[in-house]
Design a protein around this nucleic acid. Structure first.
Lengths: 264, 264
DNA sequence: GTCATGAGTTCCGCTATGCGGAACTGATAA
DNA sequence: TTATCAGTTCCGCATAGCGGAACTCATGAC
């Protein structure tokens, strides 16, 4: 019984599952993690020890938790494309101008990831929601991105993640989605009318580079407030202006950054 | 030759080294990564494939890069303690009031990690520096933290990382550092006069909880500008006020956060 | 067209490595 | 003292991960 399964490393998977468990349940004891993952305690111990050695996990007496090395790694991922950083000020401006929640969303592995989130008036929870993942078919940003992807890539993504219903108006039919994407492509703007969360509307425009969507700017808010001309025209115009400016700045300058005494 | 070495998992280490390489050199081809780590290409391929399967690595045609899942993980690490989040607005306020760079630094594995960084006037590079690591002995924040750690823990840290010189005034002698920490403890404020980078001064105060330092608020800037009463009295007073307020807010409320349709 | 090059992927045999269970340790409490 | 329980170390076994070689699949030279 040799049966070479897919070429993949079990130990690595397990280690990342340990990390993921810590992300989910926060500081935890070895026994909790072992139970959660249904692993032998000796095995769990070995994984935690390895991760601890590498400073990806810290321990506070009897509890293990995520190491702050991940903060660095997270920033590196978030700035892996210089264009990602340039969107920040536009997101801030949009939040300011609209008073609603403004976002910059990017596609990775077929999901939408919030890279910048800014809430307009109530400036609470700064950075809240960053890194969060959503399905592309049920959000304005996702549709703005998909509309500018080749059909085959769209199919791949839908095959991988399906079209689960999140709210009353979620599009769950492939054909219907194709039509919607066609509309989005023509208009250059995507809308979300309670498709992701009941009571929440949104609108988004793609940010393109070399004709390919690298992400989307979006604004979201309660459906009673985001409606009419405000939703249909005014907010899209602001976003289009921002997207346009971003696209003109094709000078994606990459700077080395000052490196003083960084410890690795 | 059995020789059980330290209980640690090689495959996990290698996988994280691959991740670390991607963090360092950015988008890279398989062959580059294999060369960098002196691994067989087949081995490198297996690691990358595993990481890709788990969405911790993405590939853009012929190049691999960090997956945006790390953005989420990074945020989780950065907010692993509710107190960390509460410092953000104080850092912003300090940057605003002083016009200099304000920071909140935490200790992890014996190093200082910047969790919040805000630059005063020139609001460029938002979030730049977050996650960066520094030695504790040569920064004001580090000294503020060490001053409130038990002696044995300080020794552990110094054993682990030593006291490397970074600038002309870096304290490289243990005894001298102990004395300095004593002074810091008495005064409640730490200073850095070109000990970390030539031409750069700084000052910091600890943020304590249950008598233990959980981090430090710091302000840094060019030594010609950060000097005299401004450095010695005025900035420390602002920071002490902020730290005091933080410590009074012992109501470290933990909220569950709204969880809508999060994809894992 | 052939041949060459080179990056990436798959195959394959070997054994080092990661696995779980059991034994051990050390702290806390009855 | 014994009991309990979390965490750590030990240990033998088989499997899972390793590197080298073979194979693909582009791309390009001639």
């Amino acid at each position: 019984m040799v049966e070479r399964n897919e070429e993949t490393i079990q130990a690595t998977k397990t280690s990342f599952e340990v990390v993921h468990t810590l992300q989910e349940i926060g500081p935890a004891r070895l026994s909790e993690i072992a139970a959660e993952l249904e692993l032998a305690e000796s095995t769990t111990h070995r994984h935690l020890q390895t991760l601890h050695d590498m400073r990806y996990v810290s321990r506070d007496g009897e509890r293990y938790q995520l190491g702050l090395r991940f903060a660095r790694l997270g920033r590196a991922a978030q700035t892996r494309d210089p264009a990602y950083e340039m969107t920040q000020r536009h997101v801030e401006a949009l939040a300011e101008e609209t008073g609603e929640r403004a976002q910059f969303v990017v596609e990775d592995h077929g999901l939408g990831i919030y890279l910048h989130v800014e809430t307009g008036s109530q400036a609470v929870r700064v950075g809240f929601g960053v890194g969060r993942q959503i399905h592309l078919h049920s959000s304005s940003a996702g549709k703005a991105i998909l509309a500018h992807y080749p059909r085959e890539r769209v199919d791949e993504i839908l095959d991988q993640w399906g079209l689960p219903a999140h709210a009353a108006n979620t599009i769950t039919d492939r054909e219907e989605l194709y039509e919607e994407l066609e509309t989005v492509r023509e208009r250059g703007v995507a809308f979300n009318r309670e498709e992701h969360v009941d009571g929440l509307n949104g609108t988004a425009v793609p940010v393109k580079r070399d004709g390919r969507a690298i992400g989307a700017l979006a604004v979201a808010g309660p459906s009673h407030r985001l409606t009419g001309e405000w939703l249909d025209e005014e907010i899209p115009d602001m976003m289009l202006a921002a997207a346009n400016e971003l696209e003109l700045n094709a000078t994606y300058a990459s700077d080395a950054g000052s490196r003083d005494h960084i410890v690795e």
